[in-house]
Design a protein around this nucleic acid. Structure first.
Length: 780
DNA sequence: TCGCCCTATATAAGG
DNA sequence: TATAGGGCGA
């Protein structure tokens, strides 16, 4: 039972060094370097561990927990240990298990912020207006709920999209704001100032539905702790140690939550250890506040700060390149990675290519080369900035017959068929779950359309009962058309049958029956679309995975909170993923394509967040490079088709920030117009002037000059460089006129036939009619 | 109510 | 270019 008081057998506290002399050091401390060891052994009081990429951060966290357990300073149930992802939590559990042996039961309070928040919320649900079996809504449910509210408020969903509002509420909840805390300014940016009111309505609706969204899992915790100090005090007594992973990714709500939980002791004595790396903070757009890590020492006065800078992952050149790029950022605590090996390793390579197809071909060739040299595909990865870049690689690898796997992308449980199946199960498990009932009432098609559902809704509202209960009532009246009434009667009867069988059947068998008897399986069997077999396969997988859970309730909790499916790594395959999802991973060889201004750094981020945005992009570059153990191969495509139109691009400024002596510039010889770089890595790396090109080859210079020409409409300054491309000269007046003869790098000569803002329709002499951006056109 | 066609839109993504 | 969602006609 968690939380049962027990005597703790405390070792006499003395100086750390004397506590474990060299000879009696326990096994788990062996192989740690000095800083790591210190981070593990500094147990009492606040501690900030700044852990650079590849410095053994997870090892420190897990060893620290093992140390606390082995020295019996706390039971597993007295350690609160939070991560951001399920994957990280799983990994930690596993590694702690290895360290302390099988003797210790799993740690009940090791998990993601959300899973722990949900756990706490279920214990005290009544205090915040929920029942302990509340449903956790995902984004999809959320949107549908918002749409209902907008409908009720007569707000035009086209003018004010539900998605947008969901995003706003997410932001508010990330900042720890309740409806009453939302500022008029924030509220005003949606539906003519009705934002805060809608937020309030939404929260009220959730309580009626006995549901919470992801944001609530923390927000309601905060409310609970603030309104019920005795509940909070109980957790203060319970948690003797707190550990937080990836602290740089925490948002305001998470920060508040942690601070409340840490308040059991004076701040200077709090046993809280946070681990993070300000240089790897790449989730600002998701509400993360780097400031949390930057001000840790203020929040917890007297905190120890330990920097882990010794890197065990990458070669000297890779570290040098990564350090050099990240040094261009101003907002950082300042760490420098180093390693002990003299080995500098291979140079990083930068290759400029004609377009994304050539980029994919080149990467494909290189991969096959490495493969011939005996390197497994599993040791190689392609890391892209935006998911649309993946396509050309996938296409190329399919033609080559090269095994690849895409990491990330649509997650298992977000698939339509899985969500439908879960909706059925949720209704069986919790008949008052109206959103789920609504989702599947007409799936498969039963002839119950919008108007029928509307009738059900109205009845449910006016009688203040759940949708299913309202349906039962309506079956006794004449309100529904006979056909619909019969159909609904059958459906309700089916649900009754299934609910009854919940006691007598294993839940996975019941699930299979539900899918079959409801006609859901048949629906996909009859579907002739190419993805139907895959969906049926997914459904089987779902039913199979249910066997791992004791109860249906347990399974549903898991599926709400644990969204990731373990990626099967059995097969040898190249990984393709975004830079964001690569954080925490490592590969021998890393391909970094698409280092072009506008794509990486992303124009949108720079437009929206200015210098801070650029710095976050640069951290992303840092994350990308530091994923490589032995090799980093970067590339630039001069032309890229984005949203159907061709854009020509110039090399990313981040390339100029690489140290020239760690980089080799490749000339593929196939580039148009001498864009290739003639003579290998060049001369000089000048940190004082970040915007001066470091590569003095002719091709590079030409590319740079092109950039200058393109911006000639505005003043060209160094500051201007950061924001230059947000200057859109096309919006009110175009530099071109109708009928004018122009030249495009890829399509050649043509005449302008239409101008919309900065998009020009051009009839090309050879290439036909195309829409292109004005900035890629020159007067002929 | 269903289904097709048209049009609007387009980072990154955890729980 | 690809897709998703809404509108409208049968």
């Amino acid at each position: 039972m968690p939380g049962v008081p027990h005597p703790i057998d405390r070792p006499s506290s003395g100086p750390i060094t004397s506590q474990f002399g060299r000879s009696q050091a326990p096994d788990y401390l062996k192989g740690l370097n000095e800083e790591q060891r210190e981070a593990v052994l500094t147990i009492d009081g606040p501690l900030l561990v700044l852990a650079g990429a590849g410095t053994g951060k997870t090892r420190v966290l897990t060893t620290r927990i093992a140390h606390i357990l082995t020295t019996k300073r706390a039971w597993p149930s007295e350690i609160l240990s939070v991560t951001f992802t399920n994957k990280a939590a799983r990994e930690m559990k596993e590694r702690i298990g290895h360290l302390v042996g099988s003797g210790v039961e799993g740690m009940p309070w090791l998990g993601t912020f959300h899973s722990i928040g949900a756990r706490i919320l279920r214990r005290h649900a009544e205090l915040v207006g929920l029942r302990s079996d509340f449903t956790i809504l995902d984004t999809d449910d959320q949107i549908r709920l918002i749409k209902q509210l907008l409908d009720a408020e007569n707000i035009d969903e086209k003018r004010w999209p539900a998605r947008q509002f969901a995003g706003m509420m997410d932001t508010w909840k990330n900042r720890g704001l309740l409806p009453r805390d939302v500022s008029p300014a924030d509220s005003g940016s949606y539906a003519n100032g009705r934002g805060a009111k809608l937020y309030g309505d939404y929260q009220a609706r959730l309580k009626v539905l006995n549901a919470a969204d992801f944001g609530d899992l923390l927000l309601e915790n905060i409310r609970l702790f603030r309104e019920y100090p005795d509940v909070l005090a109980d957790y203060h007594r319970r948690f003797k140690y707190m550990l937080v992973d990836e602290y740089q990714d925490s948002n305001v709500a998470q920060y508040l939550w942690l601070r409340l939980l840490a308040q059991g002791k004076p701040a200077s004595e709090a046993n809280i250890c946070v681990v993070g790396d300000d240089d790897q903070s790449i989730y600002g757009w998701r509400g993360a506040e780097v400031d949390n890590i930057l001000r840790f020492e203020k929040d917890f006065p007297g905190a120890r700060v330990i920097k882990l800078e010794r890197n065990y992952r990458s070669t000297g050149n890779i570290l040098k390149a990564a350090s050099s790029v990240i040094a261009f950022n101003e907002d950082r605590l300042g760490k420098t990675l180093h390693n002990d090996t003299v080995e500098k390793g291979e140079l990083l390579s930068v290759t400029s290519l004609w377009d994304s197809e050539e980029e994919a071909r080149t990467v494909g060739d290189e991969i096959e080369n490495y493969q011939r040299q005996g390197e497994p595909l599993n040791s190689m990865a392609i890391l892209v900035r935006a998911s649309h870049q993946m396509r050309s690689f996938e296409e190329r690898f399919i033609t080559l017959g090269l095994n690849y796997r895409v990491i990330g992308g649509p997650r298992f449980y977000e698939r339509k068929e899985i969500r439908d199946a879960i909706a059925y199960l949720r209704v069986v498990s919790n008949p008052s779950d109206g959103l789920s009932f609504e989702r599947i009432v007409n799936v498969p098609k039963r002839g119950l359309g919008d108007s029928t559902v509307q009738i059900l809704y109205n009845a449910s509202r006016s009688a203040n009962v759940s949708l299913l209960a309202a349906t039962r009532m309506l079956l006794e009246t004449e309100e529904l058309k006979p056909k619909q009434r019969t159909t609904l009667r059958e459906l309700v009867a089916q649900f009754d049958h299934w609910s009854a069988r919940l006691q007598s059947l294993p839940h996975w068998e019941l699930a299979q029956q539900i899918l079959d008897e409801s006609g859901y399986t048949a629906m996909w069997q009859a579907d002739k679309s190419p993805d139907a077999p895959g969906r049926l396969e997914n459904l089987k997988e779902l039913v199979r995975s249910m066997e791992d859970f004791e109860t249906l309730g347990g399974f549903l909790e898991h599926i709400s909170l644990v969204m990731d499916r373990d990626t099967a790594e059995a097969e040898d395959a190249v990984s393709i993923m975004t830079l964001h999802s690569a954080k925490g991973l490592e590969f021998d060889t890393v391909f970094l394509p698409g280092w072009e201004e506008g794509l990486f750094p992303s124009q949108r981020t720079m437009d929206e967040s200015g210098r801070a945005g650029l710095e976050e992009e640069r951290r992303l570059a840092y994350v990308g490079i530091t994923r490589a153990r032995k090799r980093a191969r970067l590339s630039v495509a001069q032309n890229r088709r984005i949203n159907g139109l061709w854009q020509s691009a110039i090399p990313s400024r981040f390339l100029d920030e690489l140290p020239a002596d760690a980089v080799e510039v490749k000339d593929t010889g196939s580039s148009y117009g001498g864009y290739g770089y003639g003579g290998g890595a060049s001369s000089r790396f000048n940190k004082a002037d970040p915007f001066e090109s470091v590569y003095e080859t002719p091709g590079w210079q030409r590319a740079r000059n092109q950039q200058a020409n393109r911006k000639s409409a505005g003043p060209l300054t160094i500051e201007g460089d950061l924001v230059a491309r947000s200057v859109d000269l096309g919006n009110d007046r175009s530099a071109f006129g109708l009928g004018e003869r122009v030249f495009h790098l890829k399509f050649g000569y043509g005449a302008i036939i239409d101008i919309e803002g900065n998009k020009l329709s051009i009839e090309f002499e050879k290439a036909g009619r195309k829409k292109v951006l004005e900035s890629f056109i020159k007067k002929a």
